Amino acid sequence: MKDLQFSRHRRLRSSATMRSLVRETYLRTEDFIYPLFILEGENKKNEVKSMPGVYQLSMDNLKAEMDEVVGLGIKSVLLFGVPDEKDECGTQAYHDHGIVQVATRYIKENYPEVIVVADTCLCEYTSHGHCGLIENGDVDNDSSLELLVQTAVSQAQAGADIIAPSNMMDGFVAAIRAGLDEAGFHNIPIMSYAVKYASAFYGPFRDAADSTPQFGDRKTYQMDPANRLEAIREAESDVDEGADFLIVKPGMPYLDIVRDVKNNFNLPVVIYNVSGEYSMVKAAAANDWIDEERIVMEMLTGMKRAGADLIITYHAKDAARWLKEQ
Rank of each mutant, 00 (worst) to 15 (best):
K262P: 08
D238F: 14
S15G: 08
D244W: 07
G41I: 01
V261F: 15
K45N: 02
F185H: 04
E277D: 13
G216R: 10
W322G: 03
G179S: 07
L267K: 12
D240V: 02
Y197M: 00
S58C: 02
G90Q: 05
N263W: 10
E85C: 02
D210V: 02
N273C: 06
Q155C: 13
E65G: 00
Y197P: 03
Y254H: 11
A308G: 10
V70Q: 12
L148T: 00
R28K: 07
M169A: 05
R259F: 10
T25G: 07
G216I: 08
A319S: 04
A320Q: 01
E85Y: 12
F37M: 05
V274R: 06
I257T: 13
Y125L: 09
R177H: 05
T29R: 01
L78R: 07
F185N: 01
V54H: 05
Y197R: 01
D240L: 15
G41H: 11
V48E: 04
I163K: 14
H9R: 13
D238P: 13
H130N: 06
H97W: 12
S127N: 15
D318H: 05
N61R: 09
Q155S: 10
V173L: 13
D3R: 10
E113F: 04
C131D: 06
Y202S: 02
V149Y: 05
G276V: 01
S143N: 10
V195C: 09
G98W: 08
N227L: 15
I188N: 09
G98T: 04
E135F: 11
G129R: 04
A209M: 10
H128M: 01
T220Y: 11
R228T: 05
Q214W: 06
V114H: 15
E42N: 08
A152R: 05
P253Q: 08
Y94G: 03
R11N: 15
A16N: 14
A183S: 06
V100E: 07
S211V: 03
E88L: 07
H97F: 14
P165K: 05
A152D: 11
N43R: 10
F32C: 00
Q222R: 05
S199P: 12
D207K: 12
F215W: 13
L310A: 04
G216F: 13
Y26T: 00
V117H: 11
V173C: 13
I163Q: 14
L147Y: 15
N187K: 13
A285N: 09
M303L: 14
T220H: 14
D210R: 15
L12P: 08
T91V: 02
F205P: 11
D138E: 11
E68P: 01
G41M: 08
S237Q: 15
E88R: 09
I176F: 07
I190F: 12
K63L: 03
V69Y: 06
S275N: 08
F6G: 02
K282A: 03
T120I: 05
S166N: 11
V239D: 13
I232S: 08
A164Q: 12
E85G: 00
Q155W: 06
G307R: 02
R28M: 00
F245C: 03
A118S: 14
K262E: 10
I162C: 14
